[in-house]
Amino acid sequence: MMHDLVLRVVAKLLIPFILLFALYVQFHGDFGPGGGFQAGTIFAAGIIFYGLIFGVDHTRSVVPDCVVETMLAAGVLIYAGVGVAGLLLGGNYLDYFVLDHNPVHGQHRGIFWVEIGVFVTVAGVMLKIFYMFASRGRTEE
């Protein structure tokens, strides 16, 4: 599969758009369908696609393991951090109304950060799972 010209060309064409679409889904999630979970899975699927066609080693050099592992934990921390931020600013845990002077803007900001946290975790976990299975297969052969 590594030497299939059609696949490589098509993948090169498509992958930037898949990743861009993931980001669009992430940041446009307030107005259209979208959000952290969807964007995370689409992003991970795009990178897995890359990994399937160009090989896992290439993917590892693009998105190294340590980055993925950091993403794994960072997402949950961002999410929890939003909650703590609300707590520090005098509200309840995960209360977004206090994040800005205007409660509605505070909500927007809270949702934004929470979605980022979800995105980072989901993308990280999916990629990590893929890496784990892929590298297992390598050692067996």
Binding site: I111, G117, V118, V122
Partner: peptide, 26 residues
């Protein structure tokens, strides 16, 4: 004031729920 109600419910109304789900995924 977020037009996509799914996002609003996911992140705001049911924030604890989603935190739990994220933790499960993690």
């Amino acid at each position: 004031d977020v037009p996509n109600v799914v996002t609003a419910v996911l992140a705001s109304f049911r924030g604890y729920d989603t935190l739990g789900e994220t933790t499960v995924v993690f």
